[in-house]
């Protein structure tokens, strides 16, 4: 079983067991430290750098630009 399949199964399993939270119960999820992308411009630049050094692309946080950068 590939690593991605294992992670996906884990994600689906965790999702199925969730309870519903009221908005006032989600305070800890809304804190600054829980943000995955602190700065969109910063994330886009990093994605752009990775895409000019590696062949892998897609499913990233931030959008890389298309260019003749290779």
């Amino acid at each position: 079983m590939s690593a991605l399949s294992l992670f996906t199964l884990l994600f689906v399993a965790l999702s199925g067991g969730c309870v519903t939270l009221h908005p006032y119960e989600r305070a800890e999820l809304m804190t600054r430290v829980m943000s995955e992308t602190p700065d969109a411009m910063e994330a886009s630049f990093e994605v752009h750098v990775h895409r000019t050094r590696e062949a892998m692309a897609g499913a990233e946080l931030g959008e890389g630009a298309s260019c003749g950068c290779n």
Binding site: F11, L14, S15, C18, V19, L21, E25, R26, E28, L29, M34
Partner: peptide, 8 residues
């Protein structure tokens, strides 16, 4: 998905 009070 919100998985719990502290997990997403």
């Amino acid at each position: 998905h919100i998985l719990s009070r502290r997990t997403k």
